[in-house]
């Protein structure tokens, strides 16, 4: 089960400019910035702002009324899992 709240990890640096986000794992010497655009940038902005996963899904459902809720839940969870695997997000404690 996906935890309720995620935040940028302690070793992540990020900037948000012009609807895009660039996120870097400072702890990995070979890492390059990950560029997020569109929905990815929106999700990052909300996560960095401390929005819970439930609220994140609700916000996406409102922004994309034509998309099935289950599709949005799966997309958000996949996004979070991917960034967590890259050590850019960690569970809020």
């Amino acid at each position: 089960m996906t935890p309720e709240r995620w935040l940028p990890s302690r070793e992540a640096a990020y900037v948000q400019i012009d609807g895009r986000a660039a996120v870097l794992d400072l702890g990995d010497p070979s890492a390059l910035p990950v560029i997020l655009e569109g929905t990815g940038a929106e999700l990052w902005r909300d996560l960095a702002g401390g929005v819970s996963l439930d609220d994140l899904v609700e916000a996406q459902v409102r922004r994309h009324p034509g998309v099935e809720r289950t599709t949005i839940v799966a997309g958000v969870e996949a996004f979070v899992a991917d960034l967590a695997r890259r050590r850019l997000l960690e569970v809020a404690t």
Partner: peptide, 10 residues
């Protein structure tokens, strides 16, 4: 700003 944070971290 990312590069600034990088140098500070290193």
């Amino acid at each position: 700003p990312l590069a600034c944070a990088l140098v500070d971290h290193v």
